[in-house]
Amino acid sequence: MSWFKRVKGGISTTTDEKKEVPEGLWEKCPQCKKTISKSDLRENKYVCPEDGYHFRIGSEEYFNILFDDGVYTELDADLMGADPLKFVDKKPYDSRLLEAQEKTGLKDACRNAVGKMNDIDFVVSCMDFSFIGGSMGSVMGEKIARAIDFAREHRIPVMVISKSGGARMMEAAFSLMQMAKTSAKLALLDREGIPYISLLTDPTTGGVTASFAMLGDFNIAEPGALIGFAGPRVIKETIGKDLPKGFQSAEFVMEHGFVDLIVPRTELKTKLTNLLQLLQIEKAKPISVPRKKKKTAEEAE
């Protein structure tokens, strides 16, 4: 019996009042509530050393984890969101975009990079959840398409790291068609026998799940990630029943046969390397793209 009863259900904080994770030297694990120093957390690939909770991280962190010495070259960095429909809900979409760009320092919710992972040339397209919930608009679709084209051109493996609530409603049917576009590109990649890895992280839902995220030669998930087509709230409303515990978790999705393996982030690079080496892909053209100097930890923060 608790002393206080929660009267208001759901999230009642408005977006303006929303508090971002405070900057500082310490991070608190939302699951076990233990405090961890930021440097320890970075060292442990942003996984709580106590209970294995996977913190939500962005493209920069993933690129640093995956690429040797954190060295990579960003591709198509200049692509930016536009507002093809002049969409206005409570706020115009173009000002939402500007706000998100200012807040995150990113151009949109997806970044492409090429680099070496344990000496294997590898192109990675990675989402940033901090940018409008990692939602998929024209930029994300185009970036993923270009990453796939890059992989085809150089005959190197490609990975898409999904972390997205799904389609970006403010781009309406343009957003929907990104599902068609990315899947069509994957069909071409498929024909050419180049490996495609889909890494599903927390959360992966909606149109992202119903296109490239589920089409990996290898669908790999992070432990505990929410993975599904419809969101849990919608399903609950539709069936009028509470959802079973663990529903739509990575473990649940693997149990039902839609994920090949679950890999903790701490083992990700080793596991991917192992897998790609087993495939013994023959490369056609050597890659010659300028490498970016690694940022020091201080600069990155």
Binding site: M179, A180, S183, A184, L186, A187, D190, T209, A210, S211, F212, A213, M214, L215, G228, F229, A230, H256, G257, F258
Partner: peptide
């Protein structure tokens, strides 16, 4: 696998 079913059709 609703998501997988749709995704596969697209491809």
């Amino acid at each position: 696998g609703q998501g997988e079913a749709i995704a596969r059709n697209l491809r």
